[in-house]
């Protein structure tokens, strides 16, 4: 079973809600699994939708030219860490 931190649980729920992932339970998203293609099988439209949800919920703007954009969306853990870091900084 996945061991999500409290904040990861929150972000997992945001992912499931914003992308209408009806047959995925937030608590079942493995923190280290890939979000895109393999794993949850998300694509670029999902990335945009998720970026909008993240900006609304946390005021963090996702940008393509972030040096580590690929890493940010790598996994639930990476995404949660990015949000936390940038939310704290602003």
């Amino acid at each position: 079973m996945a061991s999500q931190t409290t904040f990861e649980q929150e972000v997992a729920q945001l992912i499931v809600d914003s992308l209408n992932l009806e047959d995925v339970a937030a608590e079942e998203i493995e923190p280290e699994d890939a979000l895109f293609r393999e794993g949850l099988g998300l694509d670029s439209i999902d990335a945009l939708e998720l970026a909008l949800a993240i900006s609304r919920a946390y005021g963090v703007q996702i940008r393509s030219d972030d040096e580590n954009n690929r890493q940010i969306f790598q996994s639930l853990r990476a995404l949660s860490a990015h949000i936390e870091a940038n939310r704290a900084a602003s």
């Binding site: 670029s44 439209i45 945009l48 900006s55 393509s64 030219d65």
Partner: peptide, 27 residues
């Protein structure tokens, strides 16, 4: 570049004035 996220589009428009935004209903 191909701006993708809204913040990319905003930054590109700010850097490129005068600009024409070529986009889709989706974006």
């Amino acid at each position: 570049q191909r701006p993708f996220y809204p913040e990319d589009v905003r930054a590109a428009l700010a850097a490129c004035a005068p600009a024409v935004l070529v986009t889709t209903p989706f974006h």
